[in-house]
Simulated scan of single mutants.
Amino acid sequence: MFIPGGLHAARAERHQLAQIARAGADLFEIGLAHHDASLDGPVIQAAYHRALIRGNVLARALRAVEHAADLRPTVVMTY
């Protein structure tokens, strides 16, 4: 399951990841927001844009990766 890292507040993101894991996701792919996500579609581009506006993208994405890795195998997607 692909999740753009740092999109939501940390508590909400942890809850979202836990719910997705309980629903049966086998692994997580956490996307690190990038200002030029031209290889992605408009939905992911918009999510990355919102994450970048929130700031602290790397720190927030790393927290998401850390939590996701506690739940399921996890990979990070970046440009």
Rank of each mutant, 00 (worst) to 15 (best):
H34M: 00
V76C: 03
L27T: 03
L17H: 11
Q19R: 15
A69K: 05
H34S: 04
Y48D: 07
V43Q: 09
P42L: 00
Q16E: 02
R72D: 03
I53D: 05
L62R: 00
V76L: 10
A23T: 09
V65A: 01
A51T: 06
P42W: 00
H35P: 14
L7K: 14
L17T: 12
T78W: 04
L71V: 05
A61M: 12
L39V: 03
P4D: 02
E29A: 09
L27G: 02
R22S: 09
M77Q: 15
A12D: 07
A68W: 10
G31F: 05
H8R: 04
A23H: 08
R11T: 15
V57G: 11
I20K: 05
A59K: 14
Q19T: 14
H49Y: 08
A68G: 02
A23P: 10
L52V: 01
L27W: 11
V43C: 04
F28T: 07
M77F: 10
R63A: 08
A9Y: 00
V65N: 04
I30K: 13
R11A: 15
L58Y: 08
L62F: 06
Y79M: 08
R60D: 06
V57H: 07
R63S: 03
R60A: 06
V75G: 02
D26Q: 10
A10N: 12
T74Y: 15
M77E: 12
H49A: 09
H34N: 02
R60Q: 09
V76E: 10
L58D: 01
Q45Y: 02
R14P: 00
Q19M: 15
V43A: 09
R50D: 12
Y48C: 01
A69Y: 04
G6H: 07
A47F: 03
P73A: 14
F2Y: 07
A25S: 15
A69P: 05
T78H: 07
G55K: 03
R50S: 03
L7P: 14
I3P: 06
L7F: 14
N56L: 03
V76P: 08
A21N: 01
T74A: 05
I44V: 04
D26W: 08
R72Q: 05
T78E: 11
L7A: 11
A47C: 10
A64S: 08
A33D: 14
M77N: 14
G6C: 06
H35I: 06
V76W: 13
H34E: 14
A61K: 03
F28L: 07
H49F: 08
Y79K: 12
R22K: 15
A37W: 15
A64W: 06
H35K: 10
T78S: 11
T78N: 13
A46E: 13
A51N: 14
M1C: 06
I20G: 02
I53P: 02
I20P: 12
L52G: 10
F2M: 04
G31H: 07
G41A: 00
V76I: 11
P42H: 03
H15C: 07
A12F: 00
